[in-house]
Amino acid sequence: MKYTTEIIVDLPREEFIKKLDNPENMKHWQRGLVGFEQISGEPGTEGAQMSLSYKMGKREFDMVETIIKRNFPEEFHSTYDTKGVHNVQKNYFKEENGSTKWISESEFEFSGFFMKFMAFLMPGAFKKQSMKYLQDFKSFAEEGKSVLDN
Protein backbone atom coordinates (compact mmCIF):
# COMPACT_ATOMS: atom_id res chain seq x y z
CA MET A 1 0.00 0.00 0.00
CA LYS A 2 1.39 3.40 -1.03
CA TYR A 3 0.15 6.94 -0.49
CA THR A 4 1.42 10.51 -0.11
CA THR A 5 0.48 13.11 2.49
CA GLU A 6 1.61 16.71 2.61
CA ILE A 7 1.25 19.81 4.72
CA ILE A 8 2.50 23.40 4.77
CA VAL A 9 4.19 24.45 8.02
CA ASP A 10 4.52 28.20 8.52
CA LEU A 11 8.20 28.13 9.43
CA PRO A 12 11.35 28.65 7.38
CA ARG A 13 12.81 25.27 6.37
CA GLU A 14 15.92 25.69 8.56
CA GLU A 15 13.79 26.21 11.69
CA PHE A 16 11.42 23.41 10.62
CA ILE A 17 14.34 20.95 10.30
CA LYS A 18 15.75 21.91 13.74
CA LYS A 19 12.44 20.99 15.36
CA LEU A 20 11.92 17.84 13.29
CA ASP A 21 15.47 16.56 13.74
CA ASN A 22 15.46 16.72 17.55
CA PRO A 23 14.41 13.33 19.02
CA GLU A 24 13.38 15.04 22.27
CA ASN A 25 10.61 16.80 20.31
CA MET A 26 9.01 13.58 19.05
CA LYS A 27 6.91 13.18 22.20
CA HIS A 28 5.26 16.52 21.43
CA TRP A 29 3.90 15.49 18.03
CA GLN A 30 3.85 11.67 17.93
CA ARG A 31 0.79 10.63 19.90
CA GLY A 32 1.33 7.52 21.97
CA LEU A 33 5.14 7.70 21.99
CA VAL A 34 6.31 6.66 25.46
CA GLY A 35 10.03 6.32 24.83
CA PHE A 36 12.91 5.88 22.43
CA GLU A 37 16.36 4.37 22.65
CA GLN A 38 19.30 4.40 20.26
CA ILE A 39 20.18 0.77 19.50
CA SER A 40 22.93 1.06 16.88
CA GLY A 41 24.97 3.56 14.94
CA GLU A 42 25.61 7.24 15.51
CA PRO A 43 22.28 8.96 16.33
CA GLY A 44 20.77 10.69 13.32
CA THR A 45 23.13 9.18 10.75
CA GLU A 46 22.41 6.86 7.84
CA GLY A 47 22.21 3.26 9.06
CA ALA A 48 21.49 4.27 12.66
CA GLN A 49 18.69 2.44 14.41
CA MET A 50 16.40 3.60 17.19
CA SER A 51 13.77 1.64 19.11
CA LEU A 52 10.48 3.53 19.53
CA SER A 53 7.87 2.47 22.10
CA TYR A 54 4.21 3.41 21.72
CA LYS A 55 1.03 2.98 23.72
CA MET A 56 -2.25 3.56 21.91
CA GLY A 57 -5.23 2.78 24.07
CA LYS A 58 -4.52 -0.59 25.63
CA ARG A 59 -2.17 -1.60 22.82
CA GLU A 60 1.58 -1.32 23.36
CA PHE A 61 4.14 -1.94 20.65
CA ASP A 62 7.74 -1.26 19.72
CA MET A 63 9.16 -0.47 16.31
CA VAL A 64 12.65 -0.02 14.96
CA GLU A 65 13.49 3.06 12.91
CA THR A 66 16.40 2.72 10.49
CA ILE A 67 17.66 5.86 8.77
CA ILE A 68 18.25 5.09 5.09
CA LYS A 69 18.89 8.61 3.74
CA ARG A 70 19.63 11.82 5.57
CA ASN A 71 20.03 14.79 3.27
CA PHE A 72 18.73 17.74 5.29
CA PRO A 73 17.27 20.18 4.56
CA GLU A 74 15.90 18.54 1.38
CA GLU A 75 14.99 15.00 2.42
CA PHE A 76 14.99 12.32 5.10
CA HIS A 77 14.09 8.66 4.49
CA SER A 78 13.70 5.87 7.01
CA THR A 79 12.11 2.50 7.56
CA TYR A 80 9.93 1.43 10.48
CA ASP A 81 9.56 -2.21 11.39
CA THR A 82 7.19 -3.81 13.87
CA LYS A 83 5.46 -7.15 14.04
CA GLY A 84 3.77 -7.76 10.70
CA VAL A 85 4.56 -4.33 9.22
CA HIS A 86 7.45 -2.86 7.23
CA ASN A 87 7.02 0.86 6.45
CA VAL A 88 9.24 2.97 4.19
CA GLN A 89 8.92 6.73 4.75
CA LYS A 90 10.36 9.16 2.21
CA ASN A 91 10.11 12.75 3.41
CA TYR A 92 10.81 15.80 1.29
CA PHE A 93 11.00 19.39 2.51
CA LYS A 94 10.47 22.29 0.11
CA GLU A 95 10.95 25.97 0.95
CA GLU A 96 7.87 27.92 -0.15
CA ASN A 97 7.60 31.66 0.54
CA GLY A 98 9.13 31.43 4.01
CA SER A 99 7.16 28.28 4.86
CA THR A 100 8.02 24.61 4.51
CA LYS A 101 6.06 22.10 2.46
CA TRP A 102 6.46 18.60 3.95
CA ILE A 103 5.72 15.83 1.47
CA SER A 104 5.66 12.37 3.02
CA GLU A 105 5.53 9.25 0.83
CA SER A 106 4.50 6.12 2.72
CA GLU A 107 4.82 2.53 1.58
CA PHE A 108 3.60 -0.32 3.76
CA GLU A 109 4.30 -4.02 3.36
CA PHE A 110 2.37 -6.44 5.55
CA SER A 111 3.12 -9.98 6.62
CA GLY A 112 0.82 -12.30 8.45
CA PHE A 113 -2.89 -12.75 7.87
CA PHE A 114 -4.08 -10.31 10.55
CA MET A 115 -2.07 -7.30 9.34
CA LYS A 116 -2.89 -7.99 5.69
CA PHE A 117 -6.56 -8.24 6.63
CA MET A 118 -6.44 -4.96 8.61
CA ALA A 119 -4.75 -3.17 5.72
CA PHE A 120 -7.38 -4.50 3.31
CA LEU A 121 -10.24 -3.56 5.64
CA MET A 122 -9.03 -0.11 6.68
CA PRO A 123 -6.50 1.38 4.21
CA GLY A 124 -7.76 4.89 5.05
CA ALA A 125 -6.80 4.46 8.71
CA PHE A 126 -3.10 4.36 7.80
CA LYS A 127 -3.28 7.56 5.73
CA LYS A 128 -5.37 9.24 8.43
CA GLN A 129 -2.75 8.37 11.08
CA SER A 130 0.08 9.65 8.87
CA MET A 131 -1.78 12.92 8.29
CA LYS A 132 -2.42 13.26 12.04
CA TYR A 133 1.34 13.15 12.69
CA LEU A 134 1.90 15.91 10.12
CA GLN A 135 -0.88 18.04 11.64
CA ASP A 136 0.41 17.48 15.17
CA PHE A 137 3.93 18.45 14.09
CA LYS A 138 2.54 21.62 12.47
CA SER A 139 0.74 22.56 15.72
CA PHE A 140 3.88 21.89 17.73
CA ALA A 141 6.25 23.71 15.36
CA GLU A 142 4.06 26.77 14.76
CA GLU A 143 2.29 27.20 18.09
CA GLY A 144 4.24 25.13 20.62
CA LYS A 145 1.19 22.85 21.18
CA SER A 146 2.15 19.43 22.50
CA VAL A 147 0.04 16.28 22.18
CA LEU A 148 1.08 15.65 25.81
CA ASP A 149 -1.21 18.51 26.87
CA ASN A 150 -4.35 16.73 25.65
Score class of each variant (00 low, 15 high):
48 A>T: 02
18 K>W: 03
69 K>S: 10
88 V>F: 06
62 D>C: 03
147 V>K: 03
107 E>R: 12
59 R>W: 08
76 F>E: 04
94 K>Y: 11
26 M>C: 11
79 T>M: 02
134 L>M: 08
94 K>L: 10
77 H>N: 14
99 S>Q: 01
131 M>V: 04
39 I>W: 08
110 F>I: 00
54 Y>C: 13
38 Q>C: 04
145 K>F: 08
93 F>Y: 00
56 M>S: 11
149 D>G: 08
110 F>M: 01
141 A>T: 09
125 A>W: 03
22 N>M: 07
20 L>G: 06
64 V>K: 13
124 G>K: 10
10 D>A: 07
114 F>L: 07
59 R>D: 12
145 K>S: 06
15 E>P: 07
130 S>A: 14
108 F>T: 11
13 R>V: 15
144 G>M: 03
57 G>D: 14
111 S>C: 01
21 D>A: 15
114 F>Q: 04
12 P>N: 10
127 K>R: 11
8 I>G: 00
16 F>D: 15
134 L>C: 10
31 R>D: 12
51 S>M: 14
43 P>C: 05
89 Q>N: 05
47 G>P: 04
57 G>Q: 15
105 E>H: 02
44 G>K: 05
131 M>K: 11
77 H>C: 13
112 G>R: 09
76 F>D: 06
116 K>F: 05
147 V>Y: 01
130 S>M: 07
113 F>G: 07
125 A>D: 08
78 S>R: 04
139 S>N: 07
123 P>G: 12
62 D>V: 10
11 L>H: 12
142 E>V: 06
17 I>M: 10
150 N>P: 00
29 W>R: 14
85 V>Q: 08
36 F>D: 10
68 I>N: 11
90 K>Y: 02
80 Y>S: 13
33 L>Y: 05
66 T>N: 06
84 G>K: 03
138 K>C: 02
121 L>P: 06
28 H>I: 05
99 S>R: 00
136 D>K: 01
130 S>F: 08
34 V>C: 15
137 F>K: 02
60 E>S: 15
131 M>Y: 07
136 D>F: 00
32 G>N: 10
38 Q>V: 13
74 E>Y: 08
139 S>F: 01
13 R>G: 13
87 N>H: 04
5 T>N: 14
14 E>A: 15
79 T>C: 03
46 E>K: 11
39 I>C: 09
150 N>A: 03
8 I>T: 06
62 D>G: 07
108 F>Y: 15
68 I>E: 14
37 E>H: 03
36 F>T: 11
64 V>M: 12
122 M>T: 12
142 E>D: 08
3 Y>F: 15
14 E>Y: 09
41 G>S: 07
